[in-house]
Every structure is written in structure tokens, then in C-alpha cells.
Design a binder for these strands. Structure first.
Lengths: 333, 333
DNA sequence: TTGTACGCGTTATCAC
DNA sequence: GTGATAACGCGTACAA
């Protein structure tokens, strides 16, 4: 058996409540007693039982985080931000991944709710799309990342996908491109609106540029890099001079395919990504992209969640600005 | 207040212990009662209080994982394996990062131990090096990844760094290289032996190749990619024809620097990495590397840890084989 | 300044 | 087949 405050109390010849107070530095206990008991606790190898404390206090000082996969560099940066903010606030972090399986995702959320986490951070669109109603019923303070949904205890941190994509596309237009394609990612929940696609479309329309079905490529693949790689043929067939990828991983895959098939970037094709992954500046050519402050978004989401926990009524959802980063993969036509 | 089994008991007109049994599908309760109570629980929005259960049972079905940073793709793959195995076994996962700060790392471990996690997975050399003694005293079943240390409740999963590095270097030697350099990573805990460096040295000695101080490069930088990037000058100065990098991230940084400075790989310089990151095959040229099965190592570590939890005495530390993957970044001289 | 009594939600034990 | 009771470790209200 592990040492409890009762064991210490017995050894010290005091009541267990005195031990409890001494260990929690309650000033009501004399400095002498406090010191003696703390020394005793150390000597006896006492480790506070946080489970008991959580049970008693009805709080866990734990945050639950749900995401699709931790190996996606975009998401792992967000996790880093969440972990940092949680640690700074003295919270521990449960991390679970759903691998795009809505059922698993909801099972995770039920599990975390049974564990009585104080707050939830969700970086995935599946739950809120498919199980939005159930999520609201959970009653746990929740912050969604990159999915705008609100309720009594639910807030979000997101970017403006449509506007950002529009700006990205406008940049390509300003460079003189007139035939600009779009590469999609995997399938999304039904009912999901691909706002980056919408932004791209609007930019084309506003500039009076052509816009036919051939411009949109929906490649297959088990991850975004592979999808990008598999998109090259269709991209070349569509005779575009510039291509806007749904995200950086797709763009990186496309760049690799370009290299392998002798398509020069940006000479033959300008490539624009989205996300601002660290890797985007670690390759050759470096990737032009629309950057999201990933770690910051994670930190912010966490702080908002903890504010919700404290019952502050003025916690407001936030839309974060993105930033265009022009690099080598795009050129003036 | 949330619904408890007592609330359900009151509503059902039975004792709360009957409710407990019905919800846990205890066959001693009549099918009719069980069904009635489960329906009632659903209707009343009952969410089992796992904190109370953990408190009562003295187990948490939670694993604590400690690592330096989640943004390192090598580590994030390991986390993926751990998370998968934990999920499959019905365990939840605490994830904490230390950012190479031994104090923070030890603080995390104390925290996890206070939370009474059933097991610990540690993917970092700092704790075991600096706080090995304290770690042993924690008494929680623990599995270390890539750091060989054993004790009553501590096991490890690792590769043979020395042998793997020796094989990697031998491969370069077989390709005809006679002057082969080594790029180190960041500083390690004092007392830490860099076995990859040792393996490289042994291979050179065994082949009767020169081995002077200039061959070992210790670049500065805030992460491994930057270190690799900063290593180019010293590497070129040392007049090697092949370079063995401590890990893939360093190799990737070096490849970028090579591209930027017109050093052709593998024509002018053969580059070998270590780890087998996914990214290593996503760039141009693809990187020759010594691959570790990252996700598998995480899964294995988790299963071993859970076996330790179950008190199986026959849980043995494991050394996993690595695999040389020859790609485009190395060439025959 | 310290001690006593009690309860948090659940499950195990024993009695009916 | 079901109910009553106790116990897990801790913190707090109240008493001394």
C-alpha cells in the first residue's frame, strides 16, 4: 500500500486533517508543525493521491484533446500549443486520435467526459458535423479548432478559410496567372462546405477568369502527401500555369511529383500551399503558402477553454488572421 | 449536479447498488430490472463517474507518456503507436513534453505518478540519465524507448545504435567511400554515450580508414534541421565524399543546404540519415537511411507496460532490428 | 492551533 | 435477485 495522509498522521501523532493542511501549506498550521510533517511526508515517500483529490473536489485539472492524427505536422503543432498552455496552467492533457472515424471520435469524447475532464479541445470537423447535438449535451467547456460552431459552453478558434483562399488565389492572379487550378483533399463530412474551394472560385469569378470542372482535381490517396503526388497528371492535363493546393502536405506531394517527372517549379508551374508548415520552407523550392499560426491557435484555444471552466461569461470565439508567405514555388508569369 | 447511480436508484425505486450492478451487466440481476435501469440511465443522461471508479478501484486505466517534443516527426510516430495500443486496450493517454528540460521532465513524471497512471512510457534519455534513481522509486510500471535501463518495474524497447550505425557506415564504405564524416545532434546528458558515433568510428577503424577530428561536425542550431543546415560548411571543409548524419532531420537540413549552395547530392556528396522518417522519401533526392519501426516501437512499449501492470513476471526488454533503406542520396564512388 | 465528523460516487461484501 | 453497509483518500465545516 502507498502512504496516505493517515499514515503520516499516525507517525506524527496528529490528526490526518492536520497533515492535509500542513501539506497544502495552510497558514493556520504552525510553521513548526508544517515543517515537521512535510519532512515526514518526504521521508515516508508520500505521493499525494490526485485521484482522490479530483474525486473530492469534482475537478480534474485535466484537458481532453481530440484530433484525427498526431502525425500530421499541422495538427502536431497545434497539440504543442495546447500542451504548452495546459502545462503553464497546471493542467494535464489527454490526447486521443480518431483517424477520421466519426464513431471513434464520439467514443473518445464520451470516454473523456466520463473521466470528467474539465475541458475539451477538438481539432476535427467530424464530431461537430455528425454529432453536434450530442456534443452540446455533454456540457463540458469545449473549444473547437477550425470548425465554427457555438453553443452555451462551446466556442471556436478558426481562420477565415474563404477569405484566406481568396487572397491566396488573388496573389496568383496578381502574378499574371489566368488559368489557376485547385487540388482538393480527402472527402469531408456530408454537409461540409469546402470554404477554401469557395474562396478560390470567388477570386476567379471576380477577376473574370475561366472556371471549368477540369480545374478542380480530387486525387485519391491514403494521406495528403500521396494525394498531392497523384494529382500531377490531372493538373498538367488541365493546362494550368498555377495550382492552389488545399494544404501544404498536398503541395509537397505535388512538388515531389513535379521533380520526379521533370516539371520545373515555378518555371513550368507555380504551386501554392495552405497552412504554413515548417516543412514548407525546408524543401527546394520553398513553398509559397497561406500560413496559420498553429501553436498560437492551440494556446489560444486552451486559454479560452480554461476561461470557460472558470465560468467567465465573456469568452468569445475568435477568427485568426492568416498570412501570405511568398516563396520560391510561385513566379510572375 | 450530474446524475449519479443514487439518482437513478431513487427514480427506479431500487437500491443504488442494484443500479451499479445493472449498469455493469452483472448477471445476478434479472434481465428485466437490468433493462429497465439501463433505459432509465440513458433517459436521465447518466454519465458514469470514472474518477470515482478509479478512486475506488485504485486503478486509472490511464497511461502517462513523456517525450521531449511532439513536433519531432520521429517522436510523433512513436506517440501514434502508443496511442493506438492504449486505445485498443481501453486505456487513455496523458501526453506531456519536456523540451529537453530535465527538471520539467521529472516534474511531469511526479505529476503523472500523483495522478496514479497505471503505467509510464518515456521517450527521452534525460530522466533516466539524470533522475534514474528517483524513477526507480516511483514504482510505476515503466517502459523506456531508446534508452536501455532496467529495474524491477522498468523495461525498455530500443535499437542497437552502435551496430546500426556501424552497418550504415559499412554501407558507405562498400560504396567505395574512404573519407566519411559524421554530423552530431544537440548536446546529450553528461555521461551519455553516443553509440551511433561509436559505431561509425568502429566501422572506420575496422576498414582501416582515416579518422581525424575534422570528420566529426557538431553544428549549432535550435533544432536538428537547422543543425544539419548549419553543418554544410564544416562538412565541405573536411573534404569527405560521404557524410553520416545522426538522424534524418539533420540529413534533411544538410540536403537543403546542399541544394542552396549548389552541392549536388549524391554526385558531390553522399548523405546518409538515421531513423527512417516518412519525410525521408518525400524529398528529392530521397534519403538513404537506417530505419527504425517507430509506430511499432510505440505499440510494443505500450503492450509491455500493460503486461507489467498485470504483474506478468516474464516481461522482457527488447532490442528491435533496424533496416537499411538505400535511396538516391548515396552513390557508388 | 488542532481535532472530529462527514461526504464525494462507486463497488465489494455480506445479509436477507 | 435485491438491499444495506462499509470503504477507498482527501478536504472542509465546525467544534474544541
Amino acid at each position: 500500500m502507498r502512504t496516505t495522509i493517515k499514515d503520516i498522521a499516525k507517525a506524527a501523532g496528529v490528526a490526518h486533517t492536520t497533515v492535509s493542511r500542513a501539506l497544502n501549506r495552510d497558514p493556520v498550521i504552525s510553521a513548526k508543525t508544517t515543517k515537521r510533517i512535510q519532512a515526514l511526508a518526504r521521508d515516508m515517500g508520500y505521493v499525494p493521491n490526485v485521484v482522490a483529490r479530483n474525486f473530492r473536489s469534482n475537478r480534474t485539472k485535466a484537458i481532453g484533446m481530440v484530433l484525427t492524427t498526431i502525425t500530421d505536422p499541422f495538427l502536431s503543432r497545434i497539440v504543442e500549443g495546447v500542451e504548452q498552455a495546459a502545462y503553464d496552467a497546471g493542467y494535464s492533457l489527454f490526447v486521443s486520435t480518431s483517424h477520421e472515424d466519426p464513431k471513434r471520435e464520439m467514443a473518445i469524447i464520451r470516454e473523456l467526459s466520463q473521466r470528467r475532464v474539465d475541458a475539451l479541445i477538438i481539432a476535427s470537423m467530424w464530431v461537430s458535423s455528425v454529432y453536434g447535438g450530442e456534443l452540446k449535451r455533454i456540457r463540458i467547456p469545449t473549444v473547437l479548432i477550425n470548425h465554427a460552431m457555438e453553443a452555451h459552453n462551446i466556442r471556436y478558434v478558426t481562420i477565415d478559410d474563404c477569405k484566406s483562399a481568396l487572397e491566396a488565389t488573388n496573389y496568383l492572379i496578381e502574378l499574371g496567372h489566368t488559368r489557376i487550378g485547385f487540388v482538393k483533399s480527402s472527402d469531408r463530412p456530408s454537409g461540409y462546405v469546402n470554404n477554401r474551394l469557395v474562396g478560390w472560385e470567388r477570386a476567379l469569378k471576380a477577376a473574370g477568369l475561366p472556371h471549368d470542372d477540369q480545374l478542380v482535381v480530387s486525387p485519391e490517396g491514403h494521406n495528403d502527401f500521396e494525394r498531392g503526388r497523384g494529382a500531377l497528371q490531372a493538373v498538367m492535363d488541365s493546362k494550368v500555369t498555377a495550382i492552389f493546393c488545399y494544404n501544404d502536405l498536398i503541395a509537397l506531394g505535388l512538388l515531389k511529383a513535379c521533380h520526379d517527372h521533370g516539371v520545373r517549379v515555378p518555371t513550368d508551374l507555380s504551386v501554392m500551399g495552405f497552412d504554413g508548415l515548417e516543412q514548407a520552407q525546408q524543401i527546394a523550392p520553398t513553398l509559397t503558402t497561406m500560413s496559420q499560426p498553429q501553436a498560437y491557435m492551440g494556446q489560444l484555444a486552451t486559454k479560452m477553454a480554461l476561461n470557460l471552466v472558470q465560468g467567465r461569461e465573456k469568452v468569445e470565439s475568435i477568427e485568426i488572421p492568416t498570412q501570405l508567405i511568398a516563396r520560391e514555388s510561385t513566379r510572375k508569369l
